[in-house]
Computed example of a mutant assay.
Amino acid sequence: MPKPIAFITRPLPTAAVTAISKYATVRLRKTDSIIPRKDLLAGAKACDILIPILTDPIDEAVMAAAPRLKLIANYGAGYNNVDVAAATRRGIPVTNTPDVLTETTAELTVALMLAVSRRLVETDHIMRSKQYPGWGPLLYLGHGISGKTLGVIGMGRIGTRVAEIAHHGFGMRVLYYTKHKEREVELSLGAQKVSLSTLLKKSDVVTLHVPLVKDTRHLIGKKELQMMKSSAYLINTSRGPVVDEAALVQALRRQLIAGAGLDVYEHEPNMAPGLAKQWNAVLLPHIGSATIETRTAMAMVVAKNVQAFVHGRHLPNCINPPHVTAFS
């Protein structure tokens, strides 16, 4: 029986592509850029397995154009780029790559907390542009985070890891807002479950770790930003549309909050007008999982999902079970 055809929309680490090629005939788009819509439709049309990334909108139209499609193996922990409901209606399993990027994303979250609160990017620019006048008692003052209060919105794997680092590393008190009570986190970190409004009002740093679903779109908007302390910082390494970016620009401009650290954007790769001009924002190009180790591990998870599917085994990271059948 011939191997299924796997279409990969963008170059992945070589080790993973080699692993996938053991189980499927790989058609790899070699251009390292966001795939044009027409190329996505053309590639999907002739494949059995589609391996997209988070910038690829895999919607009803893509699936309709792909009569052979039997698996969508998304490269990423998030999967809001895939119309999972449409895939489920068609009996197409969708997989993702969770777990392996927890540490890396948590590290970057803490890095953003420190970078924005201590004005690292701003002052780096001052040095490089030769604007440093010499040391002074009142120059470039920021805020420390040790002993402060961290508010975690979404206490999943990444949110929990950030809370652990903040509590054990910086002695931060942890408040959290999520649907369910996390007893283990409360016992190990002394974390307290509170309402969203209480978290916003009491936290010195608010960090977002929720998936992008209907209820979390613009979870943080004008009203929520006005609840935050004027000395507080907002960190977002989850999904851009969780924050009303235009409202955030206004809050930063008016200094309603002290600053923001962002790795994701509402209309990525674009930013809201005026955001780039805000000195009190640290802006990163979605590098939460961008280490050699993590990006390779993510790709290897994709390979394992492909292997399991081709052999008719249980998919380790299936979002919409039980739509699993062996390739035939």
Rank of each mutant, 00 (worst) to 15 (best):
L12E: 07
G144H: 14
T97G: 05
Q250P: 02
L175W: 04
G159A: 08
D204N: 14
A85V: 12
G169T: 11
M271D: 00
R239P: 00
R119K: 15
I165A: 07
M271R: 13
A66D: 05
P316M: 13
L28R: 11
D124N: 15
T102S: 10
G144C: 11
T109Q: 10
Q192N: 09
I92M: 06
K70C: 13
V243I: 12
G221R: 06
L212M: 08
P137W: 08
G43F: 04
R253I: 01
G274T: 07
N96R: 15
I165E: 12
Y132D: 12
I153G: 01
T31F: 09
I126D: 14
G274C: 05
T55H: 10
Q226E: 14
T95Q: 12
L28Y: 06
H143G: 06
M172S: 08
Y140Q: 13
L114N: 10
M113F: 11
P2G: 05
L219N: 03
W279G: 07
A86D: 07
T237E: 06
I220L: 01
T160V: 05
L114A: 05
K3A: 08
R90T: 11
V243H: 01
S146F: 04
H286P: 02
L41F: 11
T237F: 00
S328F: 08
R254E: 15
L252Y: 00
D56S: 10
G43Y: 05
I34F: 09
H180V: 12
E164N: 10
N74Q: 13
L50W: 07
S197P: 01
M155P: 03
M172K: 11
